[in-house]
Simulated assay, not measured.
Amino acid sequence: MLKDTALQILDQTRSVLESYWQGNCEEILTYFAEDSTWIGAQLEQFYQGKVHIAQAIRQISAEMKPCYLLHQEYRLVHRDKNSCTVMGKYLATTDETAEYFLQGWQRVTFLWVLEDEIPKIRHCHVSNPIGELKVAKGEAFVNTIGKMAYQFLKLHQQATHSKQRIMVLDRSDTMHFISPYEIAYATADRHNTNIVLIHGQEIFARLKITDLLEQADGGLVAIHRSHLVNPFYVSHLEKQTAVLRSGVRLPIPEKKYTEIRERLQAVFSAPSETSEP
């Protein structure tokens, strides 16, 4: 396959994905080869043959709300005489017209082949870091996650207007008055605590991490005896790890993983009509 052809296919990958996320699944379906395979982000999404793939994708598309793609990145990782492989990642975000908010990273791999000089998708693999969050039984698309994310926005708005403050004395004897919702995470340092704020500032506080947790009054979650996190600042969970929006990775004890995951999920399923989240 000529390099120019492969680069055109790379751009075509972007184009059909953008069209798909806007609700037009028929365009991408025209590119699947008859003997193609598709592995989706969910466990049951494992299909062979264009007919079965089309049925599954149309079901998903019927439940989707329009999304646009941010931070798109695509790479041509392989090219030979008759095929090429494109891998990519992007941040899918619901359109402003949707009645809920969804935002999550997705990674894709496409194997393209030339059939009578026409590009066809022979294999497509989708992986999704937010898979740790629950998808409601019977759903083909992550609408429940979208509602949880929308709940997050409502809670976050309430948190922004919270008058709750924690008094923190640092090692230079400066007193800080901070909202627990300004804290991204905190790490114990013997009898002191290193507090990292969402905007990046670090405060070496002269208080125990247990005292900080108590003063936060529910605004922080203890995921480890040495680590507290702001649940609004957690990007996703991996096995025994909380990945924050900044990319920081904090450990979760293996025996506590399920409990911590459920506690974080509970934050987004709690009623949001109260004045203080």
Rank of each mutant, 00 (worst) to 15 (best):
residue 22 Q to R: 15
residue 22 Q to H: 14
residue 22 Q to F: 06
residue 23 G to S: 10
residue 23 G to L: 03
residue 23 G to F: 04
residue 25 C to S: 13
residue 27 E to K: 12
residue 27 E to V: 12
residue 27 E to T: 06
residue 28 I to R: 00
residue 30 T to G: 10
residue 32 F to L: 10
residue 33 A to W: 06
residue 33 A to I: 05
residue 34 E to H: 07
residue 34 E to P: 01
residue 34 E to M: 07
residue 34 E to K: 06
residue 34 E to A: 15
residue 34 E to Y: 08
residue 36 S to K: 01
residue 36 S to C: 14
residue 36 S to W: 01
residue 41 A to N: 10
residue 43 L to K: 12
residue 43 L to P: 06
residue 45 Q to T: 06
residue 45 Q to A: 13
residue 45 Q to D: 14
residue 46 F to M: 14
residue 47 Y to L: 14
residue 47 Y to M: 09
residue 47 Y to E: 13
residue 48 Q to Y: 07
residue 48 Q to W: 07
residue 48 Q to P: 01
residue 49 G to V: 07
residue 49 G to P: 04
residue 49 G to C: 03
residue 51 V to T: 13
residue 51 V to M: 06
residue 51 V to P: 00
residue 51 V to A: 12
residue 51 V to D: 13
residue 53 I to L: 10
residue 53 I to K: 02
residue 57 I to E: 02
residue 57 I to V: 13
residue 57 I to F: 03
residue 58 R to W: 06
residue 58 R to N: 13
residue 58 R to S: 11
residue 58 R to I: 01
residue 59 Q to E: 14
residue 60 I to C: 02
residue 61 S to D: 12
residue 61 S to G: 04
residue 61 S to N: 11
residue 62 A to C: 07
residue 63 E to Q: 15
residue 63 E to C: 08
residue 64 M to Q: 10
residue 64 M to V: 05
residue 65 K to E: 09
residue 66 P to Q: 07
residue 66 P to S: 13
residue 66 P to M: 11
residue 67 C to Q: 07
residue 68 Y to W: 13
residue 68 Y to V: 04
residue 68 Y to P: 03
residue 68 Y to R: 12
residue 69 L to E: 00
residue 71 H to N: 15
residue 74 Y to W: 14
residue 74 Y to Q: 04
residue 74 Y to M: 09
residue 75 R to K: 15
residue 76 L to V: 12
residue 78 H to T: 09
residue 80 D to C: 12
residue 81 K to R: 11
residue 82 N to C: 12
residue 84 C to G: 08
residue 84 C to H: 05
residue 88 G to I: 02
residue 90 Y to L: 01
residue 90 Y to H: 07
residue 90 Y to C: 03
residue 90 Y to Q: 01
residue 91 L to N: 05
residue 93 T to H: 06
residue 94 T to P: 00
residue 94 T to V: 03
residue 95 D to W: 10
residue 96 E to A: 11
residue 97 T to Y: 08
residue 98 A to F: 01
residue 98 A to L: 09
residue 99 E to D: 14
residue 105 W to V: 03
residue 105 W to L: 10
residue 105 W to K: 03
residue 106 Q to W: 03
residue 106 Q to Y: 10
residue 106 Q to T: 08
residue 106 Q to H: 09
residue 106 Q to A: 07
residue 107 R to M: 05
residue 107 R to H: 11
residue 108 V to P: 05
residue 110 F to D: 01
residue 111 L to S: 08
residue 113 V to T: 12
residue 113 V to P: 01
residue 114 L to D: 00
residue 115 E to L: 11
residue 116 D to V: 04
residue 118 I to W: 00
residue 120 K to E: 05
residue 120 K to I: 07
residue 122 R to E: 15
residue 122 R to S: 14
residue 122 R to D: 14
residue 123 H to S: 15
residue 127 S to I: 11
residue 133 L to F: 11
residue 133 L to Q: 11
residue 133 L to D: 08
